[in-house]
Computed example of a mutant assay.
Amino acid sequence: MPKNRSKGSGIKGPSNLFNLRSLHFPLYFPYDFMDLIWENLVKNFLKLWSGDFKGLDAGQETYQFTKSVWEAIGAATTASGSTIPSAYGVRVPNIAGDGVYMSAEMLSFWTLYLGPVLLYRRFSDESYYNVVAAVLVY
């Protein structure tokens, strides 16, 4: 594996566990929902909407939020913590500023309860919201 790829990904090569014939990947080590959805898909959605996804721009579509809209969503996320009992989960920080520091629990709470409400009527094309709501809630 090239050096620059290992620096960027943190993966230096296949694990020595692959040499054990008694282990079958991914049968014994299945992918879990937390890593696939909360730590990967949702974080990538947030980066995509904020215009910070791997240096890509919106292209011909209009799914990225302007900076002011994204900051308003982040402020509303933070403000919601004052009205939601802690029994429901941890307080979610400003998603526009502290999104990279969010745990899987925070991302799941935002995705299931706050996101659908805060994203409603924020996209310039309603079809984006419908797709997002279908993916995040169902």
Rank of each mutant, 00 (worst) to 15 (best):
Leu41Gly: 10
Thr111Asn: 05
Val42Gly: 11
Ser22Asn: 09
Lys12Phe: 00
Ser22Cys: 15
Val132Lys: 05
Thr62Tyr: 11
Ile37Val: 14
Asp52Gln: 07
Asn4Gly: 13
Tyr88Trp: 04
Ser103Phe: 15
Arg5Cys: 15
Tyr31Lys: 07
Tyr129Asp: 04
Arg5Met: 09
Tyr129Gly: 07
Leu119Ile: 11
Tyr63Arg: 08
Leu41Glu: 14
Ser6His: 02
Asn130Pro: 05
Pro2Asn: 14
Asp32Thr: 14
Leu46Tyr: 13
Thr83Ile: 06
Ala75His: 00
Ala76Lys: 03
Arg21Asp: 08
Leu20Asn: 12
Ala104Gly: 03
Asp57Cys: 12
Met102Pro: 10
Arg5Ile: 15
Gly99Asn: 05
Tyr63Met: 02
Thr66Met: 13
Asn40Pro: 03
Ala76Val: 02
Val135Met: 14
Leu23Cys: 07
Gln64Val: 02
Ser82Pro: 00
Arg122Asp: 01
Pro93His: 13
Lys12Pro: 04
Trp110Phe: 12
Phe109Gly: 09
Val117Arg: 01
Gly13Trp: 03
Leu41Val: 09
Ala79Lys: 13
Pro14Ile: 00
Glu71Leu: 02
Ala58Leu: 01
Leu20Asp: 12
Leu36Gly: 06
Asn44Glu: 12
Tyr63Gln: 04
Leu23Gly: 06
Gly99Gln: 03
Leu112His: 02
Asp32Ser: 06
Lys7Gly: 06
Pro85Lys: 10
Gly81Ile: 00
Leu118Gln: 05
Ile37Cys: 10
Ala79His: 06
Tyr128Leu: 05
Asn44Arg: 14
Ser6Ile: 08
Ile95Met: 07
Arg122Thr: 03
Leu41Asn: 02
His24Glu: 10
